[in-house]
Design a protein around this nucleic acid. Sequence first.
RNA 1: CGGGGCGUAGCUCAGUCUGGUAGAGUGCUUGCUUUGGGAGCAAGAUGCCGGGGGUUCGAAUCCUCUCGCCCCGACCA
Length: 437
Amino acid sequence: MRLSRYFLPVLKETPADAQIVSHRLMLRAGLIRQHTAGIYNWLPLGYRVLRKIEQIVREEQDRSGAVEILMPTVQSADLWRESGRYEDYGKEMLRIVDRHERDMLYGPTHEEVVTDLFRSIARSYKDLPRNLYQIQWKFRDEVRPRFGVMRGREFLMKDAYSFDLDEAGARRAYNKMFVAYLNTFARLGVKAIPMRAATGPIGGNLSHEFLILAETGESGVFVHKGVLDKTVPADVDFDGDLQPIVDDWTSLYAATDEMHEEGAGAELGDDLVSARGIEVGHIFYFGTKYSKPMGCTVAGPDGAPVDVHMGSYGIGVSRLVGAIIEACHDEAGIVWPEEVAPFKVGLINLKSGAAETDAVCEDLYAKLEKAGVDVLYDDRADERAGAKFATMDLIGLPWQVIVGPKGVAAGVAELKNRATGERVELSFDAILARLAG
RNA sequence: CGGGGCGUAGCUCAGUCUGGUAGAGUGCUUGCUUUGGGAGCAAGAUGCCGGGGGUUCGAAUCCUCUCGCCCCGACCA
């Protein structure tokens, strides 16, 4: 993409409305623009990041055996009356009345819809287990939206719903999501730590929140320092026994301030790390909470109807854009992990309009594109070097290729690593080899 | 939903107390110069001063109603 033809409104000054660093950077780097309170336009650069995250989430869900569907954003209130949540949900639910005076709502979550869908299709225990997921926009009418996309009213979420014959099956489904989440966050380039979460009326220990550690996180977290060094096993067999992996990750203390126990923390002594975190995922087993009132049953092996055991599993996709920036930035701007970066390379022509740098840049640009490398080429003729550097640092692409007249005369350009700041002068071919490899 | 704050040029913000021709910086346009870290000089364009009603000879400024946004708290992916 040529910057001269793109739609990238970077701001030199910090917008007055934005308080936290990710919100400020998302506005300054031209990722989003606010439409109204808690609702955002996604501009090209931000939308690319959103899609990258979405795709990684999708691939890891698929790999774990979940099946993608797409459910409606607008739902019938009747379903929520069946589950008993219509009145409970309160003002967070955006309620709509259609032309026939029927009560509708903009979905804040999809347990009711997916349970209704599944009960209309599944007849036998042989239809189990299943895990259906979607990546869909939701709306919760937060009293007080803030922090940009981290706490918007409209947000993009991956939500999965598992259906099993019994609790043991549900636990296997739960473990699959647990491990899928570990894989997902690792690929996203962030460290997300599973922490025991409140399970509500269901009880048990099958609820975990995944939190990214960041100074500006909204929740206080207390973790055993050993958790920070845990790694994700490669090439997990999702049909095998995942319990050892889950046990390993949950063996060390990790809790948000809500769940924190002073005593347990004190026992850890120097091993206790106190930090802040942003919740980006939540997995939850809730048994027959919806299947029972909504009549989602299948015939068991003995022919008798069985209430299906369910769990739900969320990842805040749009929130992750902000959360990743919270964890990955410096004074100059965003520092994208390569997997989610909107472009891999920023190509800077320090003297657009000069024949020699233009020729080198055009050649590098064409060859990188041909090699399948996402490149944002700053070909603007009316910006000076300093402005181009500042813009490129702000938007945080992992690699910068800097082409100036002096280097071109010597047959080299500069390759800069955004994260480390390291720069090396290399021949054009060597740069191509490094970036296309 | 309780408490507080703010709406003035694309952006950041003066001006409001004490009514009297709409301001600065930055950005934008044009020209010249400049050319490796958000350049310099010169010229220029840009505003229903959030909206309605009122007071007044006269309102960005005072009164009133209203809409929107932000912050703190309670709440939450």
